[in-house]
């Protein structure tokens, strides 16, 4: 089975300790969220897991065959049109060019892009459309592990829900494992099997939450109820400094 194991991971920038003694594991088919306040080292942790930063202390074992990354900003190449941007990951894996373009067009349609947008450059796309392209680019390579770095934070609620529904379908088909970082608890509850709470300065995991109900069956009522419950948790109040009036 493919899995990602993080063992006694420490990380610092200069003398500032960013992450301290992080331990967790992520198994195939699971969705794991790491929630915490901004500046708490979430992005650093994700970058370490994705291999975008070098591990200094501790160990990260990643046996997933392939992975993709979706960033907070779309990060599209401005000189490439929509389809060429989507095909980037496929071509990097050595896919045949025509096949890559074909697949890219298919997934673009699935993600709500229209044929007339295919040859537009990023400058002509709205923020939401850019994020659709970014998701298409990540998912077209059929990654077994997907890293999400708060990709929904700048989107309107409608689009947020639409993209999350896409992911939930993939989760339901057991086609995807996700490591998700966010500061939005409702988002985390909607998508995750497990949530880890990362407290800041230095970033350390202080609590685990587990959600058994399959994502497909989580309706708004369930999400609101669980959100209300989690917001009363003492650790959550302390970590997000909710007590300060």
């Amino acid at each position: 089975m493919e899995r990602l194991v993080v063992e006694s991971l420490n990380h610092s920038y200069g003398f500032t300790e960013i992450l301290k003694d992080i331990n967790f594991e992520l198994n195939e088919g699971e969705v794991l969220s790491i929630v915490g306040p901004s500046g708490g080292g979430k992005t650093t942790l994700l970058h370490l897991c994705a291999g975008l930063l070098d591990v200094e202390e501790g160990e990260i074992k990643n046996s997933f065959q392939s992975s993709a990354f979706t960033f907070q900003e779309p990060r599209l190449l401005p000189w490439k049109n929509v389809i060429d941007n989507i095909a980037l990951g496929l071509l990097a894996k050595g896919a045949d060019k025509n096949e890559a373009l074909e697949k890219s067009q298919q997934i673009a349609i699935q993600f709500g892009l229209e044929k007339k947008d295919f040859h537009k450059f990023p400058k002509d796309l709205s923020g939401g459309m850019k994020q659709r392209v970014s998701f298409s680019r990540a998912l077209v390579i059929k990654p077994s592990l997907l890293f999400l770095d708060e990709p929904f934070s700048a989107l309107d609620i409608g689009l947020k829900q639409e993209l999350q529904t896409h992911l939930i379908e993939l989760i339901h088909q057991k086609a995807l494992t996700i490591l998700f970082i966010t500061h939005d608890l409702m988002e985390a509850i909607r998508l995750s099997d497990r949530i880890l709470l990362l407290k800041a300065e230095p970033g350390r995991i202080v609590k685990h939450f587990k959600y058994e109900l399959p994502q497909m069956q989580r309706d708004n009522e369930y999400i609101y109820k669980e959100s209300a419950k989690i917001l009363l948790d003492q650790q959550i109040i302390e970590t997000f400094e909710l007590g300060i009036k």
């Binding site: 970058h47 992975s67 993709a68 990354f69 960033f71 990060r75 980037l88 990097a92 894996k93 680019r137």
Partner: peptide, 8 residues
Amino acid sequence: EMCDSFHL
């Protein structure tokens, strides 16, 4: 970073 994440 994006290019690295896709292992270009």
